[in-house]
């Protein structure tokens, strides 16, 4: 049978294409040589170690971490009530709201970054950090709304009514009955938002200044100047971080149910 050979061959080639480059990056980060090359010249951990000593990486890592965590929390604070309103209330204009909050997924990030630079940072003097924070929050908002909406859709609304009839206030019912039951969805939204924000480049392209830039932008700048394996080492570290988080999330939350 042709198929017996063709199918595994196709799969092997496609996987090589998809995963291979990443494997090469990982291998290169353990190189002992001074330039980025494959096969790596010898084995060492020096490039992995170097990543931690580069001051700008440390700064931009902190910035990216702040944006990913802060932006996701802000997006959830805005997104959870909005999702709840759309799921539970007769809301005239619900479609408009849904469209508004999903815009940031449709509009290319580079345009958002540019628009914020041009109309907030330059004329008003909004700090770049704050602009980045707003941009990342806007970017994560659609994901937050989508994931939280999906988990609310699986939750029957009569549970809240039952809580109210047992004496809870509407708000009390939300916190005591709704929130515990959409915890998985919220955590999944958090992880999705975190990974999206952390890996995001276009939005942050124009929003960088002295000492203020996100990690991927910093990496882009670094590799234009220096051609050593430290960016590879950093990439590997970040990749394993992302994969680790998502893997744990899938293991304990059934992450993929919500995404």
């Amino acid at each position: 049978m042709m198929q017996k050979i063709l199918a595994p061959l196709t799969l092997a080639l496609v996987m090589l294409f998809l995963i291979g480059p990443f494997a090469i990056i990982v291998a290169a980060s353990f190189s002992a040589g001074d330039t980025l090359a494959f096969p790596p010249q010898g084995f060492s951990l020096k490039w992995i170690a170097k990543v931690f000593t580069v001051e700008s990486f440390r700064q931009s890592f902190a910035m990216s971490l702040f944006l990913a965590i802060g932006g996701t929390i802000a997006a959830l604070i805005l997104g959870i009530p909005a999702s709840y309103a759309m799921a539970r209330y007769r809301l005239p204009g619900a479609e408009t709201v849904r469209f508004m909050v999903s815009l940031p997924i449709i509009v290319p990030g580079i345009i958002v970054g540019l628009a914020l630079l041009r109309y907030f940072v330059i004329p008003i003097g909004l700090s770049i950090t704050l602009a980045l924070f707003l941009a990342h929050t806007a970017l994560i908002l659609p994901y937050a709304v989508r994931v939280v909406s999906a988990s609310l859709a699986n939750l029957r609304s009569d549970m809240e009514e039952a809580a109210v009839l047992l004496g809870a206030s509407r708000l009390g019912a939300f916190f005591s009955v709704v929130l515990p039951n959409i915890r998985g969805g919220i955590l999944s939204a958090f992880i999705l938002g975190f990974v999206t924000s952390f890996n995001q480049v276009p939005v942050s392209l124009f929003l960088s200044g002295p000492g203020v830039r996100t990690l991927p932008i910093d990496m882009l700048g670094y590799m234009e100047i220096v051609f050593d394996p430290s960016v590879a080492a950093l990439s590997s570290l970040l990749a394993f971080l992302s994969i680790g988080i998502v893997f744990l999330a899938e293991r304990f939350l059934g992450f993929s149910r919500y995404v």
Binding site: P21, I24, A37, N199, S235, L238
Partner: peptide, 17 residues
Amino acid sequence: LPLMISPVARTYAWIVI
């Protein structure tokens, strides 16, 4: 899996290749 990895890292690999 690749979707979880930074596009910078994924693209960077092609320089090596």
